[in-house]
Simulated assay, not measured.
Amino acid sequence: MLGDGIYSVPGTGFIGWIESFKLAADNPDLKPIKTYQSEIGFDLNFKFGTFNLTGFYNTMKDGITTVEDPFTKQASLIQLNSTTTPASYDVIGKRDIYFFSNNLINALKSEDIGAEMFFTFNRIKALNLDIQLNGSFTKTTNTPNKIQYSASTILTAPERYAVYNGLVTKSEQLNLGSNFNYHLKKVGLILSLRTEHILMMNHNRNQNRYPIGYLDDRMVYHAIPVADQTNTDKYGHLIQKPVKGDESLQRALHNFHLRISKDFLNGFKVSVYTTNVLGLKPTYIDSVKVRNLYPIAEFSLGAKLEYTF
């Protein structure tokens, strides 16, 4: 919408005026997201178990993300007529207006590199016990190939909006886990315990926010030479505070899940399971010294009934 209002015309009444236009709701130039996955691994067989290690490298290109696009449109200049009844107006010219509109584009790239391992021990027959250990390490980098805008801190400056590169985010995580399955054959009972351990979890968004260019009062883009992007005398009103987003796990997180299953001779099987069986509520202290709960699985209890014909 470019203009709207209700105007009072002395002696003739009121007149309402609205001018609007439509922007395309979609982007016909959008391309399909491209993903590439590659992995390599090996297995080692020992007398007491099997070890598997797999490394992977995954990439995503042409990811879809939202950007702000600067627009220039012309709005009508109107003149109210005070001599007509009912009130009326005439369009006497045009004026430029400038604004931003959101748009979807292919501008996101993501890379995942990491490894997964599994160690499955042979059953301990004397105890009817199966044990499996697992672990994974993942490092992810998200790179938005887009630009961002922010209004100048000096409204009268010829540089109306600063232009920045998109924020790159990096994260890495190290997990370990285990599974224990204990089988009581005499009563057809299986006890399963699964453990989860997050040993490392980092998230980094630390970046300086120096402008790579600016938009003038007509939304025309002007590039800023690299040598001048940190010049506070010329562009201090466009330079923002560095983004601080370095978050690290303060201490390891642990969680335990239990399942009890009973097989009956008539084909029925009953399972009772609980997540976070110990009711753990680990906390961390954020950047403003407030203690918060980590988002691990909360305690819950459930059951499942199966019948096999």
Results as ranks from 00 to 15, higher is better:
Lys94Thr: 06
Thr232Lys: 15
Leu127Ala: 12
Ile40Val: 15
Lys185Asp: 15
Asp263Ser: 11
Ile131Trp: 01
Pro295Met: 12
Asp217Cys: 04
Lys31Thr: 13
Ile212Cys: 08
Lys234Gln: 13
Met1Gly: 07
Asn27Lys: 08
Ser38Leu: 11
Lys146Val: 07
Val270Ala: 07
Ser76Glu: 02
Lys185Pro: 02
Val270Cys: 05
Asp246Ile: 14
Ser152Ile: 01
Phe299Lys: 12
Val272Pro: 02
Ile64Lys: 02
Lys73Thr: 01
Phe56Thr: 03
Thr59Ser: 15
Lys125His: 06
Thr120Pro: 01
Gly245Met: 06
Glu68Gly: 13
Glu19Gln: 08
Leu278Thr: 13
Glu19Thr: 06
Tyr182Met: 14
Asp233Phe: 04
Ile113Cys: 03
Lys186Val: 12
Tyr235Pro: 02
Arg218Lys: 11
Gly13Tyr: 13
Val163Thr: 09
Ser300Leu: 06
Asn128Ile: 03
Gly188Glu: 01
Ser8Asp: 11
Gly302Ser: 09
Ile15His: 01
Leu199Thr: 07
Val272Ser: 08
Leu258Ile: 15
Ser261Pro: 05
Asn58Gly: 12
Arg218Pro: 00
Tyr214Pro: 00
Asp90Met: 08
Thr156Lys: 08
Thr169His: 08
Thr35Ala: 13
Met60Gly: 05
Asn52Glu: 14
Pro10Gln: 06
Tyr89Ser: 03
Ala297Thr: 09
Ile33Gln: 11
Asp233Thr: 15
Lys244Trp: 08
Asn231Asp: 14
Glu298Gln: 10
Ile260Asp: 00
Leu108Val: 00
Arg251Leu: 15
Ala24Val: 08
Lys94Leu: 04
Arg160Asn: 05
Met1Glu: 02
Leu133Gly: 02
Pro86Ile: 01
Asn208Lys: 11
Pro242Arg: 10
Ile212Gly: 04
Lys61Trp: 05
Gly177Thr: 06
Thr66Pro: 01
Val288Gln: 15
Tyr210Gln: 03
Arg194Lys: 15
Phe46Gln: 12
Ser271Cys: 04
Arg95His: 04
Tyr235Met: 10
Phe264Arg: 13
Tyr89Leu: 03
Lys304Ser: 09
Asn45Glu: 14
Thr72Phe: 00
Arg209Met: 06
Gly5Arg: 05
Pro28Tyr: 01
Thr230Cys: 00
Thr169Asp: 06
Pro211Ala: 09
Thr54Gln: 05
Ile105Leu: 05
Ser20Tyr: 11
Asn175Ser: 14
Lys47Trp: 07
Asp112Ser: 14
Trp17Pro: 00
Thr308Ile: 12
Gly93Tyr: 13
Gln79Val: 07
Glu68Trp: 05
Asp130Arg: 05
Thr66Gln: 11
Ile154Thr: 15
Asn266Cys: 10
Asp62Lys: 11
Asp96Val: 02
Ala227Glu: 10
Phe264Val: 13
Ala252Lys: 14
Thr85Leu: 13
Gly279Ala: 08
Lys125Ile: 07
Val277Ile: 07
Lys47Asn: 13
Asp69Val: 13
Leu278Pro: 04
Leu127Thr: 03
Ile285Gln: 06
Ser178Asp: 10
Pro86Ser: 03
Phe42Arg: 06
Gly55Val: 03
Gln37Val: 12
Ile124Glu: 05
Leu108Ser: 08
Phe121Gly: 00
Gly55Asp: 07
His183Lys: 15
Asp286Ser: 05
